[in-house]
């Protein structure tokens, strides 16, 4: 049986809100140590992996490992109308493993609303161990998420693709659209400690800007973001979420190649 309790303004729900423009259904695995969510967008281009340890929830109990397909879009929609100080309880039982129950309790505890959401069947993807994947990359850029968001905002003025390339002591973002082009050079400063650009080998990736903007939305929940690039491989965007937590989110984005 799984039971977890959280307040509406919680990290988990804020992250779910932020990823909904990419995915509406997700594979959620729960164990005694925490919750892992994995989801692929409908086009099979972007993958999201979210890890939230048990202690991040107001209450968390899972006595048996569970894996379920959840329509997170429907779940978030059900929770949206709850009062901001309301308490949300999510339950899944072994006896009836066809749905989950989402209960919303008002702050005064005088009103309880329960939703029963049917579980969905999902294709599961075998993604290699992500930490190992990060070590193999040609270039990594650790940067404040505000910088990443600002660059994505600049890029969103140009409708099209973005080329991310390594340059001497830095990285370059280049977007070419119908109305013109945009070029951002992001260099390793001499003194800043929150920027770390490491290049093992030159690399250039072309990516769909629409996905980059979705990634920027989640990075708003984190102070730092890490981009890892390797020739001909998916871009990896990694964020630790919140302060003093071990929660993290990882995105993979398939590149565009010469047609």
């Amino acid at each position: 049986m799984l039971e977890l309790k959280l307040v509406k303004e919680s990290l988990f729900l804020n992250v779910l809100e932020a990823i909904l423009d990419l995915v509406a259904v997700a594979s959620v695995s729960c164990s005694s140590t925490g919750l892992k969510l994995q989801a692929m967008d409908a086009k099979g281009v972007a993958f999201i992996s979210l890890l939230i340890p048990a202690k991040e929830f107001q209450f968390y109990h899972c006595d048996k490992d569970l894996s379920m397909g959840i329509a997170i879009g429907d779940m978030v929609e059900a929770i949206r109308s709850a009062d901001k100080d309301g308490t949300i309880t999510i339950k899944a039982s072994d006896e009836n493993f066809r749905n989950i129950t989402v209960s919303i309790e008002s702050p005064e505890c005088n009103e309880t609303t329960s939703f029963s959401l049917l579980l969905v069947t999902l294709k599961r993807f075998c993604i290699p161990e992500l930490q190992g994947l990060l070590k193999k990359y040609d270039a990594c850029v650790q940067m404040p998420s505000v910088d990443f968001m600002r660059i994505c905002k600049y890029l969103s003025n140009v409708d099209g693709d973005v080329d991310i390339s390594t340059i001497d002591k830095g990285i370059r973002f280049f977007a070419l659209g119908k109305c013109g082009c945009l070029n951002v050079k992001y260099m390793q400063p001499e003194k800043a400690t929150d920027i770390d650009i490491s290049v093992q080998a030159p690399v250039s990736l072309t990516l769909d800007l629409k996905y980059m903007n979705s990634f920027a939305k989640v990075s708003a929940l984190s102070n730092q973001v890490k981009l890892c690039l390797s020739k001909g491989q998916p871009l990896v965007v990694q964020c630790k979420i919140g302060q003093k937590t071990k929660s993290r989110i990882i995105y993979l984005l398939a590149p565009k190649i010469k047609g």
Binding site: M40, K43, G44, V45, A46, F47, K123, R124, F125, C126, I127, P128, D161, T206, D208, Q233, P234, L252, A254, P255, K256, I257, K258, G259
Partner: peptide
Amino acid sequence: SRKQTKLSAFFSEK
């Protein structure tokens, strides 16, 4: 022109 790849080209499906 550029062609969008899919993640399934990099990772296997279960």
